[in-house]
Computed example of a mutant assay.
Amino acid sequence: MALIQFLGSTAGRWVRIIAGVILVILAVVLGGWWLLLAALGAVFIAAGAFDFCLLAPLAGKPLRGSEFRKTFTS
């Protein structure tokens, strides 16, 4: 639960974006089948940039980041 709470935070958003960029760069450098990592990296970038946490529903929390964070401040 602590990991999901972190991923929904502002710092967690930045971690997801940076991890996504690293995966995309790694995929481009390695090429071949490694380019599949670029798709995963794009999902991480989008999740951070558009403020949603894909793991939140596993904890019974809303997908949208702003609504997700409200559940921890109430």
Rank of each mutant, 00 (worst) to 15 (best):
62 P>S: 12
63 L>Y: 13
29 V>S: 10
41 G>D: 02
46 A>V: 07
38 A>Q: 03
59 A>V: 02
62 P>C: 08
14 W>M: 03
11 A>I: 07
41 G>P: 01
9 S>L: 03
43 V>R: 04
58 L>P: 07
26 L>M: 14
24 V>R: 10
23 L>V: 01
7 L>Y: 07
50 F>H: 01
25 I>Y: 08
22 I>R: 10
67 E>V: 02
70 K>W: 10
30 L>N: 14
56 A>G: 05
30 L>R: 14
63 L>Q: 03
15 V>A: 11
24 V>G: 06
60 G>L: 05
49 A>W: 10
32 G>S: 09
52 F>G: 00
11 A>C: 04
4 I>W: 12
51 D>E: 08
61 K>I: 05
23 L>G: 10
33 W>N: 13
12 G>F: 05
46 A>Y: 09
27 A>C: 09
21 V>A: 02
9 S>M: 04
59 A>D: 09
40 L>K: 06
21 V>R: 00
20 G>Y: 10
30 L>T: 12
37 L>V: 04
60 G>K: 14
74 S>K: 14
74 S>V: 11
73 T>R: 14
19 A>R: 03
69 R>D: 03
22 I>D: 04
1 M>C: 08
45 I>L: 08
7 L>C: 10
69 R>M: 11
2 A>C: 06
32 G>A: 01
20 G>S: 12
30 L>F: 13
49 A>F: 07
16 R>Y: 02
19 A>G: 04
36 L>H: 10
17 I>P: 05
74 S>C: 06
59 A>C: 00
56 A>F: 11
45 I>K: 03
23 L>M: 15
28 V>L: 15
16 R>F: 02
41 G>K: 04
22 I>S: 00
20 G>R: 01
28 V>N: 12
70 K>A: 15
31 G>M: 11
63 L>N: 00
65 G>A: 10
6 F>K: 11
50 F>V: 00
39 A>P: 07
55 L>G: 06
27 A>N: 11
55 L>M: 13
10 T>Q: 13
52 F>I: 00
47 A>D: 08
45 I>V: 03
2 A>K: 14
61 K>S: 07
1 M>T: 09
70 K>F: 06
6 F>Y: 15
18 I>W: 10
38 A>K: 15
4 I>Y: 08
15 V>C: 08
7 L>Q: 01
59 A>W: 06
51 D>Y: 12
33 W>C: 09
23 L>Y: 11
36 L>C: 10
42 A>T: 00
61 K>A: 09
52 F>R: 05
65 G>N: 05
39 A>S: 14
37 L>T: 06
44 F>D: 02
68 F>D: 06
64 R>Q: 15
58 L>I: 12
62 P>D: 03
10 T>W: 14
67 E>K: 15
11 A>S: 15
50 F>G: 02
60 G>W: 09
40 L>Y: 11
19 A>I: 01
55 L>F: 15
71 T>V: 09
65 G>Y: 09
50 F>C: 11
49 A>Q: 01
55 L>W: 15
74 S>I: 12
19 A>P: 06
10 T>M: 12
54 L>Y: 08
32 G>D: 01
40 L>Q: 12
31 G>C: 10
44 F>E: 04
34 W>D: 05
12 G>M: 05
49 A>S: 09
22 I>F: 07
24 V>M: 15
70 K>P: 06
39 A>F: 15
35 L>V: 00
59 A>M: 03
19 A>F: 01
65 G>S: 03
63 L>V: 02
72 F>P: 02
24 V>L: 14
10 T>V: 15
39 A>I: 15
20 G>T: 01
72 F>Q: 05
